[in-house]
Amino acid sequence: MTMSKSMHHTARKIVVKLGGSTLEGLNEAFFRNFKALQNEGYEIIITHGGGPAINRALEKENIESYTINGLRVTSEEMIDIVQSTLIGKVNPALVQQLNAAGIPAIGLNGFDAALLESTYLDQDVYGFVGEVVRVNTQLLDTLTAAGIVPVVACIGMSKEGQALNINGDTVASGIALAVHAESLLLVTDVAGIRIKDDYQVTAVETDIAGWIEKGHIYGGMIPKVQGAVACLQAGIPAVQIVNDALQGTTIKKEG
Rank of each mutant, 00 (worst) to 15 (best):
N243I: 11
M1Y: 11
I148R: 01
H9S: 12
V151W: 02
A178I: 01
L108V: 08
I79V: 15
H180Y: 11
Q83W: 14
Y120E: 06
A29R: 14
A245R: 13
A209Y: 13
G88A: 06
C154S: 15
A163W: 08
E77G: 07
V204T: 14
Q38T: 12
H48F: 05
H180V: 00
I44N: 06
S4N: 14
N33A: 00
G19R: 01
G219I: 11
I195G: 09
L184S: 01
V204R: 11
F34Q: 04
R12Q: 12
A101E: 13
I103T: 07
E117I: 01
T206D: 12
Q233F: 09
K89E: 15
D207G: 07
T250C: 03
E40A: 15
S4K: 14
A36Q: 14
L86D: 05
S84H: 07
M3Y: 10
I44F: 07
I63A: 05
L37T: 06
T10M: 13
D122K: 13
K252C: 12
G127D: 05
P104Y: 11
M221P: 00
G215N: 07
Y218V: 13
A172N: 04
N62W: 01
I217R: 06
P150Q: 12
A113M: 13
A57C: 02
V201K: 15
R134Q: 15
S183P: 00
S84C: 08
Q38W: 01
N91I: 04
L98K: 12
D197W: 01
D198W: 00
I68R: 13
E64T: 14
Y218K: 14
I46Y: 04
G168V: 01
G19L: 06
L18I: 08
A11F: 11
R12L: 14
T142I: 09
R12V: 03
G102A: 10
A114V: 11
G168I: 01
E213F: 02
L232R: 02
G227H: 05
A191T: 09
N62L: 09
K196R: 14
A178K: 05
E64D: 12
K196N: 15
L116I: 03
G50P: 07
Y66D: 04
I222W: 04
N33V: 02
H8C: 04
G88L: 05
T170Q: 08
L108H: 10
K13M: 11
T249A: 02
H9C: 06
V149A: 10
I103K: 04
N136Q: 04
I166H: 07
I212W: 03
H216P: 09
T142W: 12
V135Y: 02
K224Y: 07
A29E: 15
